[in-house]
Simulated assay, not measured.
Amino acid sequence: MDNIPPKVQNQLAMLQQMQQQLQTIVSQKAQYEMTVREARRAVEDLGDVPEDANVYMSVGNVMMQQSRDKVISSLNEKIETLDLRIKSLEKQEKMLQSRFEQLSTQIKGALEGKPQSAS
Rank of each mutant, 00 (worst) to 15 (best):
G47N: 09
S73N: 13
Q106E: 15
V26T: 10
K78N: 10
L111E: 08
A118C: 07
L111W: 00
M1Q: 03
K87H: 10
T35G: 00
G47A: 12
M63S: 14
P5F: 05
V71W: 05
L15P: 00
E33N: 02
E90D: 02
M57E: 05
M57K: 02
R85Y: 10
K94Q: 14
D45S: 13
N3Q: 10
E33H: 01
E38Y: 11
S67P: 01
G47V: 13
E93H: 15
A30E: 00
Q102Y: 08
M57G: 06
L89T: 01
Y56V: 04
K94E: 08
K7V: 15
L96G: 06
P6S: 05
D2S: 09
T24R: 08
K108H: 13
E101K: 14
S119R: 03
Q16M: 14
S27R: 01
K7N: 15
S74R: 01
V55K: 14
A13N: 08
L46Q: 15
M14N: 04
E51I: 12
L22F: 04
Y56A: 03
V8H: 04
I4Y: 01
A30I: 00
D48W: 04
S27H: 05
E93C: 07
A53F: 06
T35M: 02
E51F: 15
M57N: 07
E101T: 09
A39P: 05
D69V: 14
